[in-house]
Design a protein around this nucleic acid. Structure first.
Lengths: 346, 346
DNA sequence: CTGAAAGCGCTTACAG
DNA sequence: CTGAAAGCGCTTACAG
């Protein structure tokens, strides 16, 4: 660990070891065979000089950056959901000797594709091999990324406005089956009057509503949607909709919330009104945010394996890079309903 | 947005525009003056061919990667705390045309420095210009990073086992003043019997305890520490210590928790025993995690400006890169006590 | 097995 | 203002 001038170059190592620069490169890449003796001399010189090869130079020849970009779009914060996906991406990437660059982007769905001001890393080329699109994805961003010929994988659950065939690689999780499981569970616990709370203008909440609806219809029960638009946050949505939930002729015994935030909003508003969870009303959420276990009682919710999603994105992107002509693939990862304390047996 | 073979090179653009490659480079870097006419021809050729310069090649000449690494050490998850710091780093970086690479590392404090297996990005050189150390930082990691001559800035709040002079750049926040403010607030609300709950074998909890102690002594009050070691999680710590808090001869009227997690643990355990917050006991936390506002009543806590910490880290690292000989600096960002509903006026 | 040379895609003095 | 050349730090055929 001696002090080492960082600019040590392969040429200096070659001189110190008394060999040609090609030989240094060969032992570095352990590609072709180098004699035992020479290799030892070279290794020794490398250690003595504290030589670390310049990655840029290698990459320019390899035509591979060995780096991908995790692009988070239209998010004010790196929320735990995406943070853990990023972590899954990094985890798989590092195993494959790939690097992960984190970048953020804010854009409007109405900007023409070619006008979207991508982060510099996507404007140059050679820096990254591909990109993982996270956050909210509108068609214009997709067009833009295709326009620069950049291989990509999209996190499909937040793709907006593309109901038809989707000609790109994507990884998602099973919204519909998540609420289906949750609804079946509620029914198995004796619940009949169950409502769904969520703003279904979001495609993912729409899918969750459909899963709930399917569960209800299986048992000849009537789905009821509590929705609203233009509410500032999901938490407020929960607080605002509680009135309508409680005011019906026959009050529901359970609520399927479109996500955990809505569930929290509901839960707090219920507390305020002195309505006890789960004694008087049962509640389930979706996402399994960290807070879910902090609630009292802990929230029963649908679990999404975030790390696995990240890993799958990275894996799929790598496959795409190695087989550019391969057919596009869509993977939907399973979701899992977690039974905790917020549902009561009737 | 025509389909463009990504391998378009500066030489092809030069040919298309009928100029030398040096001229292309000049308009790209808008460095020296190029005639109006030539510049237009070149720009046109660039657009027609969809040319995007190869970043690696430029960097190799500039001797600057324009990229830094955010290295998260010894963390199983990218928690919201570090996620928001990362976001602050990225935000400042992108404004300065720098890129941010995310990497994770797991190491033991007992591994000799030279044996620490750094992520590849730190083993090669040229890929990044510097590193921001986040997560838990032991002296051996510091030695290792110094050993490879890599400029760095450390998030100082999680630095372990270095009480003396610290010869490196660091950014932190004011643990001590945070609990000092919180304690003064409690006292101003009429509280006298206030205890501190936290495992002070962590340096940061020790500092928070000191801030609390100072606040108590200012008013000739006696600091009381509720501590324990080897508890699996901070949440469990809260649950376990509630018994000792309630069992004393004179029950305290308020608790300063070492962090929000401990506060949640306490709060839930108090709920279980039917002790109401804040009616029967007041509670304050530290960190201002997202959940703090979800509690009922919302938790009064010490706020740490995470984005600002990230921005400051990035800024300081950039200064270091531009002035390698500059004296090391330590910056401590202020913390702020947030008054919410978990404290009662006595 | 190994050296010398050509070349990756750029930037930057050096001449005009 | 601009072209031709040298060079950044590597890798990889090409010869021996």
């Amino acid at each position: 660990m001696e002090a080492v001038p960082r600019k040590t170059t392969i040429r200096e190592v070659a001189r110190a070891a008394g060999v040609g620069i090609g030989t240094i490169s060969r032992v570095l890449n352990s590609s072709s065979q180098v004699s035992w003796k020479t290799r030892a001399r070279v290794l020794d010189a490398i250690r003595r000089l504290g030589f670390r090869p310049n990655a840029q130079a290698r990459r320019i020849l390899k035509k591979r950056a060995e780096m991908v970009c995790f692009l988070l779009s239209n998010r004010d914060f790196l929320h735990p959901f995406h943070a853990r996906i990023l972590q899954g991406v990094e985890s798989y990437a590092s195993g494959m000797k790939q690097h992960v660059l984190f970048a953020a982007l804010h854009y409007s769905p109405r900007t023409p594709p070619e006008k979207i001001d991508l982060p510099p890393v996507l404007q140059e080329h050679g820096l990254i091999d591909g990109v993982i699109l996270a956050g909210t994805i509108y068609p214009n961003l997709l067009r833009r990324i295709e326009g620069i010929q950049m291989p990509f994988v999209a996190l499909s659950n937040n793709v907006m406005g593309m109901d038809d065939v989707q000609q790109f690689d994507q990884v998602g999780f099973d919204d519909l089956n998540g609420t289906l499981q949750a609804t079946r569970y509620l029914i198995s616990k004796g619940h009949r009057r169950i409502v769904f709370a969520g703003d279904v203008s979001y495609p993912w909440l729409q899918r969750r509503f459909e899963g709930y609806g399917r569960g209800m219809r299986e048992q000849k029960l009537k789905p009821v949607l509590i929705t609203a638009r233009n509410v500032p946050s999901f938490g407020d949505f929960g607080q605002e909709s509680v009135g309508r939930i409680l005011s019906g002729r026959s009050r529901p015994t359970a609520v399927v919330a479109g996500n955990d935030e809505i569930a929290y909003g509901l839960w707090r508003a219920l507390c305020r009104r002195g309505v006890k969870v789960p004694d008087e009303i049962s509640l389930v959420g979706f996402d399994d945010r960290e807070e879910a276990v902090l609630m009292d009682p802990p929230l029963s919710t649908v679990c999404v394996h975030k790390e696995e999603i990240g890993e799958t994105c990275m894996k799929m992107l790598l496959e795409r890079l190695h087989h550019p002509q391969m057919a596009f693939s869509q993977r939907v990862l399973p979701t899992e309903f977690l039974i905790r304390g917020s549902v009561r047996q009737l």
